[in-house]
């Protein structure tokens, strides 16, 4: 498998289930060695996108390449190098942990027995325990173990820590970090728990309503965006259509807005444009605030703009 390709290439991918559009013209390229966080609300299209990556859905419009190959055309070759942890609790419950390991070991050429034993110990898993008798966190650890033990070039985690206790979440994050620390390995991590994403991911993409709204490196976020907090009446706000402003939020008369710094050469210009005396604070934009701003902006863009909506957005 060539490493000259990006780990994941998605080109103008669209997908609709009956009448609802799950993905709309998504284009994304994730380079090898990247830890990519895919964030979005429930039903935003994260799982649909991931199902395309593992070959579970065949693209009708657009193109998907994983490690340089089409996962629906050559799954046996692509999936040898992909580790996948599903959102659902899907492992066969009638199996014991040992049986699951033995079964998966037979499928992967690069299975690493030493790593497997190490992970068994780390995750406190017992080979003789039936998966049906384990807790949800235990099954998630077992799923993670079999996804990691063949040392995949690409690890795809679809909301792996959803509904798990903090210890299990910690195990998963450590696994992501360890995989990423190996040279040339890529991780795609889908979640709506932003603290996790901010801790482990070097690039984040936000998806909303089936559209990839933005992709940004986490270290670039404070340089690129800032948050302005100030005081303004609703009527004044409705009249302001300033470039680079998005994601308005307010509590009473105090409001906050995310601002793209590229539209303003410096902070003084920015304050002047808004009306300097009204601005309380200009601070770096956090990942949470950036996410909510992008998602809210997208939600409002789909609703016809009426005075009531203006008020809502304010």
């Amino acid at each position: 498998m060539s490493v000259s390709h990006p780990a994941i290439e998605i080109d103008h991918l669209s997908c609709a289930f009956r009448r609802s559009e799950a993905l709309h013209d998504v284009t994304l390229s994730i380079p090898t060695g990247c830890v990519f966080g895919l964030v979005g609300l429930n039903g935003a299209g994260k799982t649909t996108l991931i199902r395309h990556l593992i070959g579970g859905l065949r693209p009708r419009t657009g193109r998907v390449r994983v490690l340089g190959e089409d996962p629906t055309q050559t799954p046996e070759s692509v999936m040898q190098h992909v580790g996948y942890v599903a959102e659902e609790d899907v492992l066969p419950r009638w199996m014991r942990v040992g049986e699951l390991i033995d079964f998966m070991r037979a499928l992967y050429r690069n299975w690493d027995d030493q790593l497997c034993d190490k992970l068994l110990e780390q995750f406190s898993l017992d080979r003789s325990t039936k998966l049906a008798d384990m807790s949800k966190g235990g099954r998630a650890r077992a799923g993670l173990l079999v996804a990691l033990a063949h040392r995949p070039q690409l690890l795809i985690l679809d909301e792996p820590s959803y509904g798990l206790d903090p210890i299990a979440r910690q195990d998963i994050l450590e696994a992501v970090v360890r995989t990423a620390s190996d040279e040339g390995r890529t991780v795609l991590f889908s979640s709506h728990l932003l603290d996790e994403v901010s801790r482990v991911c070097d690039t984040v993409g936000v998806i909303g309503g089936g559209r990839l709204l933005e992709v940004i490196a986490t270290e670039q976020l404070p340089e690129r965006y800032c948050e302005v907090v100030g005081e303004l009446s609703i009527d004044d706000l409705a009249q302001r259509e300033l470039p680079g402003f998005f994601g308005w939020q307010n509590r009473g008369r105090e409001w906050s807005v995310a601002v793209d710094r590229r539209a303003y050469p410096d902070e003084a210009t920015l304050r002047r444009e808004i009306g300097g005396e009204l601005v309380h604070e200009v601070r770096p934009l956090s990942l949470e605030r950036w996410f909510s701003a992008r998602v809210n902006d997208r939600e409002l863009a789909t609703i016809p703009r009426t005075p009531a909506v203006e008020e809502l957005s304010a």
Binding site: P92, R96, D102, F103, A106, L107, D126, R127, S128, T129
Partner: peptide, 26 residues
Amino acid sequence: TAAACDRAVAATSRSFPGCVDALDWY
């Protein structure tokens, strides 16, 4: 867990000759 683990490793570990055999068993 620790005591059971040692017994279980010996009891349940198996090696399938190939993926077809593993799938067959499954």
